[in-house]
Design a protein around this nucleic acid. Structure first.
Lengths: 184, 184
DNA sequence: TAGATATACATCGGCTCCGAGGTTTAAAAA
DNA sequence: TTTTTAAACCTCGGAGCCGATGTATATCTA
């Protein structure tokens, strides 16, 4: 998804892609050569991208990669209907968010944000005692577990706040677009 | 790490472990049977845990798992000197945090927190233009990328704040312990 | 009493990804 | 001039994990 997402902005060669994916770091660990190049080949075989050999600006020749219509469609499908992990796994979610603007319909964008919003709404019960009963944060002995839950709650609230504002804005824009087209 | 970490609190059987790991969800995706049971066997072969067959409380007999001294040592090594991914990958970091109390020395605990603190200090440069120059958040066209960076900064500050307070407290406690032993 | 459900454990094929190694090309350093 | 460094690409073996599938047992439901 990150490969096609970056290529959707402008053509890039593999080495450049690698650095861009790596610098989403903190969210995504740097991608290894052994992952990147086979994946590029796979996307090429699936006609999601084309490559043109160009002279390297500094050294060895580059393979400039360009996304195709098929690739754009694939990217949009991934964004529109993301696998569960892309909603529940923070790392994956942030990747999705980084490219969600490529899904041009605001209503569809809002729908994806809503899925995340719904996920964040679930109360986090992280720790249980020997009998299986949940332990409330204030009864946790470990200050690290206490901090973990504090941070979790706080960051969740931050994101929920942003999500709600964003969803409202997107829906408003979608509604406005509908009214402009003269009807529902 | 999660398996040994949970077992360090009290003995558990595989099925129970599975649920406990799964309910760290949001941070960790539920662990699959095909992952859990081979891992348990691996830990048993490495003498990190022992199993006793006990009658199941509801149905089939259980294998009650108990951590050994070897297992405790292994867990402490993992916690004391975590692989880079456990510092930089949020999911893994939260797992580590959930069991850091098993590393009993406050100075060692503070050291681990400091590694995370140092990582969070790095300024996040997530997006670059076609020429390779970093794009400042306010110039990003995508509201999602803007939100991504906002959330990232905000949650980082929250965690940094907690880390600083926690590190200070741990170092104070370590210093107090040293003074009590009558030394340096 | 038959089937469905939940507990509890286990295996196996397949997929993804990584890390180590290797190649080519140009520029910089020795 | 030779070596080193950095850019740029590629491959292969192995590790880790998942999903499907299967087994046994006790309880709940039809």
């Amino acid at each position: 998804m990150a490969i096609l997402g970056f290529l959707r902005d402008f053509p890039l060669h593999g080495y450049d892609l690698k650095n861009r994916v790596a610098s989403l770091a903190g969210h995504v660990r740097p991608i290894a050569d052994g992952t990147l190049y086979p994946t590029i080949k796979k996307l090429e075989d699936a006609q999601c991208l084309t490559r043109r050999t160009a002279p390297g600006s500094v050294a060895a020749p580059r393979h400039m990669l360009e996304i195709t219509q098929t690739g754009t469609d694939q990217l949009r499908r991934w964004l529109r209907d993301p696998e569960p992990g892309f909603i529940t796994d923070d790392n994956k979610w942030y990747v999705l968010l980084a490219f969600l603007h490529h899904l041009e319909n605001p209503r569809e964008q809002a729908l994806v944000l809503s899925r995340r919003r719904e996920f964040l709404d679930q109360p986090a019960q992280l720790f249980f005692d020997a009998a299986g009963a949940p332990i409330p944060p204030e009864l946790l002995e470990s200050p690290f577990r206490k901090g973990l839950m504090q941070i979790h709650r706080s960051t969740n609230l931050t994101e929920i706040d942003w999500l709600d504002r964003q969803i409202a804005e997107l829906n408003q824009r979608a509604g406005y677009a509908v009214r402009q087209r003269g009807g529902d």
